[in-house]
Design a protein around this nucleic acid. Structure first.
Lengths: 160, 160
DNA sequence: GGCCAAGTTGACGTTTACGTAAACGTTGAC
DNA sequence: GTCAACGTTTACGTAAACGTCAACTTGGCC
């Protein structure tokens, strides 16, 4: 295949990468502003190399697991200094482990909040059953459940 | 006890409530700005009634479970309209249930991120073990684990 | 020539929950 | 008299990750 994505000399426009990874042009330019990407230019237009594409993948992976852009940049910088990559891998491993423990903590916090929420719900349900059973919402609306699942998504990990 | 906190005519200064609930004066004034609290005045100074104290408790409880201040305000507003409180309870129950499903979703997202993280960690560990086993960080630093536990806290639920 | 699509560079707006001065008033202790 | 400790208001700062204009250029196509 002549258009194989992995052919190293292949280049990409901003929109191609946006489509492929479901990002916006604004986001890619923003990453560039922040030093995460440094695509070549053809006149004014950005030209993304195969390496740029890999970096973008790493950026998005970092975001998915909840790293901040500045943390991601640090890791990418190490990736460039390229002392065979070993030191960079060690630092990445450390960051990832830190992030994992932080996420575990977040999960515990959420569990605590859920306990408090369920208690509050139970109290309200009991009192409503006494006073005005007709106002008691049966089960959760399907609508809302669905909407809640369609929003949030991976963004929740980033604390949005 | 003459100073029983539940004595309805008892009043509180801003600092007393701050100490009791570990908030800052700035925060209470901010809640007032946002319409969540409306303490009386003695000259310029704020005087918090027993009812204000209850409202503050509700505010903080709402925050702990991850509601935004504007959501909390909506609930408190309903609390005031006070048609025997039943309608307000029904709305609160609805909000709480919505919040619960959102938190459950967040937990799933976190679990997904944790899976991706653990895979990445495993890959890095294997490759480091091959290339430079000396750089492989043994276990997580005690320091960092402790720090991670002391920060985050309930704030994590709020997405901080 | 004329127009559209897609690219570019600023630069300001958004959101949340306060923190952080700055500048001032009041009260009580010494 | 004056210093500390508490209170007040006004108002700007913060952080993150872009969204959303605005105003312009470039290339292609008819």
């Amino acid at each position: 295949m002549l258009a194989d994505l992995r052919r190293p000399e292949r280049t990409f426009t901003i929109r191609q990468l946006c489509n492929e990874f479901k990002a916006t042009p604004r986001a890619l330019r923003f990453y560039e502003d922040k030093g995460l990407l440094t695509p070549a230019r053809e006149g004014l237009n950005r030209v993304y190399s195969h390496k740029d594409r890999v970096r973008l993948q790493l950026i998005l992976r970092g975001k998915r697991v909840g790293l901040s852009l500045s943390e991601i940049r640090e890791l990418l910088d190490l990736y460039d200094e390229n002392d065979d990559g070993a030191a960079q891998m060690a630092r990445s491993l450390k960051k990832f482990r830190e992030r994992a423990t932080a996420l575990e903590q977040q999960r515990e916090d959420i569990d605590g909040a859920l306990i408090e929420l369920r208690e509050a719900c139970a109290r309200l349900e009991r009192r409503l059953a006494e006073i005005r059973p007709d106002l008691l919402p049966r089960a959760a609306d399907y609508d809302q459940v669905l909407r809640a699942r369609l929003d949030g998504h991976a963004d929740a990990v980033m604390g949005k």
